[in-house]
Design a binder for these strands. Structure first.
Lengths: 106, 106
DNA sequence: CATAGTACCTTGCAAAACAATGTACTATGT
DNA sequence: ACATAGTACATTGTTTTGCAAGGTACTATG
């Protein structure tokens, strides 16, 4: 079930990481893996969606340690989206914690 | 997009509310609506899934103010699930906040 | 020359939120 | 008598997205 929790937050995670600097796909998998289970089958389709939406763009860099890397860079539009989603996440998690702690009106 | 954030957490919300007392479906929609957008099309299928899984059971109570109400009661198994999911949620939200704040290893 | 690690990508499946739609009861107003 | 609104249940079909499984290809190591 763990997997369902990630819905909607992975995009925010990726955008937030890219806000702090360019990364390539495989690197993103490793970074996020330190916090939660994730595989390439999740990241690459997500990067494609983000690129199609104009939130990120990309460029290729050759590597001596293996195949060429596709680096992703966040766009100005992407930064706006990231801010929106971060705000959404903060208020959402507050709302959930409220319901967990039983602060709804009777 | 808001909708995607709810994945996996609605179940926890419902179980947490039922931990504090029995509720009927329409009532749950109203309680949760005070925190986030939700409709009956989400709750009723969820209640069916929870019942099939043995996390809740239900009983009918006649009402003078409208049609009969189907009350849901959490089972012992459901309480175990609720605790597990609450723990999962807490550690998940910590992990997300870490990624947002850029505490991943470089 | 086999294996492991790096790095890319696609296909197909499954879970779950939700709009839309439908039924049926009670109460209120006209 | 009849329309409307509120309460309360339920189902169908669509959409999104996470992810296992599979594939390609490069470099380095034993």
């Amino acid at each position: 079930m763990q997997s369902q929790l990630k819905r909607g937050t992975l995009e925010l995670c990726v955008l937030s990481i890219l806000c702090r600097g360019d990364r390539y796909g495989y690197e993103l998998v490793n970074i996020i893996s330190s916090c939660m289970h994730i595989t390439e089958g999740t990241i690459y389709p997500l990067m494609k969606r983000l690129k199609d939406a104009g939130s990120i763009d990309s460029y290729i860099v050759e590597s001596q340690e293996g195949p060429p890397r596709k680096y992703y860079r966040i766009t100005d539009d992407g930064r706006v989206i990231q801010k929106e989603q971060e705000t959404e996440w903060r208020s959402f998690s507050v709302a959930i914690n409220k319901l967990l702690d039983g602060e709804e009106k009777q």
